[in-house]
Amino acid sequence: MSFINYSAREINTKVVYYGPGLCGKTTNLQYIFNATNEGARGKMISLATETERTLFFDFLPLNLGQIRGFNTRFHLYTVPGQVFYDASRKLILKGVDGIVFVADSQRERFDANIESIENMFDNLREQGIDPKSVPYVIQYNKRDLPNAVPVQELRAALNKDNVPDFEACAQSGEGVFETLKGIAKLVLQKLREGAAG
């Protein structure tokens, strides 16, 4: 849930990167961290296991600049992707303003993507959040791999709501900022709707 601070002239929002294990959520955040100058971002926090698998979450605060005199800050979070961390995933969805679903394009992860996006909708509902009320985008990651499923096939399986979707290779950074921009737009548009309503 976004937080508007009239006193500090700040707007803070929370964006969560969701997706199956090893799909590249943390890699997205790492790329954003490395490609953003220091003034526009805070420290990246990773609560990971010894083998660098996300245990609880990664966190990266970003300052996107000003809109109408208000500093626009996005707090990016990832969830742990592994199936058995479901309890943690639910917690991180609390107060979410926008979601990036990161799909792993590899053929052998096709079913894992479907399971994960269904799990995302279930967990939102469990938090009392209507999935239709939360803006989200989809990123088809790892497009550079030889075993990548054609985008049309992924789209048919995952993008039933016809939300904005992006092809990416988070390792090289391709599509990472396009995805971020896509979700930021939706979140800000939603704020505008809320203000108008």
Binding site: M1, N5, Y6, S7, G128, I129, S133
Partner: peptide, 11 residues
């Protein structure tokens, strides 16, 4: 969404 947005005013 059910949770109202947190808005902070000067006062």
């Amino acid at each position: 969404m059910h949770e109202p947005q947190l808005v902070m005013y000067e006062e």
